[in-house]
Structures are given as C-alpha cells and as structure tokens.
C-alpha cells in the first residue's frame, strides 16, 4: 500500500492542475459565450490563420 504515498500526491496534483486550467479559462473569458464558437467553426474555412482570441 506504500504506492498510495505517491499516488495520492499525484492525483491531487493532477486534479489541482485541471482546476487551475479551468479557472484560467473562466478568467480569460473563454466560457462567456458558449453559443457562437460552435457556429463560427462551421463557416470559418478561409480564416485558419486567425487566432480564436482577440
């Protein structure tokens, strides 16, 4: 069971990492509008070069 001493910190680190990533996406406004990007993607053939963020 000693493996737990590695696995638990790892799992918490992993979970914390995802949480941090989530918080970053919210703070940077990526989830403010969940409707338009789905449509934008469909019609966006000639604009590959443009970044998704302003």
């Amino acid at each position: 069971m000693n493996i737990l001493y590695i696995m638990i910190p790892l799992s918490i680190l992993l979970g914390g990492g995802f949480l941090a990533a989530f918080i970053w996406t919210v703070k940077s406004g990526q989830v403010d509008d969940l409707v338009t990007p789905a449509h934008r993607m469909l019609e966006d053939s000639e604009r590959e070069g443009r970044s998704a963020n302003e």
Binding site: D32, D33, L34, V35, T36, H39, R40, L42, E43, D44, R47, E54
Partner: peptide
C-alpha cells in the same frame, strides 16, 4: 440567427477597410 450571419458580420473585418475586428455573441 445562424452561422451564416456570424460569418457575414465577422468577415467585415476583412472586407471593409478600417475595421480592425468584429466579434459576434450570438447568444445575446
């Protein structure tokens, strides 16, 4: 109402001189 509208409006930034960026929020 649709993706074509998004495309039409957002491409103004390419088709119209002097428009730097156009972002549409369809939901609102």
């Amino acid at each position: 109402s649709c993706s074509r509208c998004v495309r039409k409006l957002e491409s103004l930034s390419e088709n119209m001189v002097g428009v730097k960026s156009v972002r549409v929020d369809l939901g609102r």
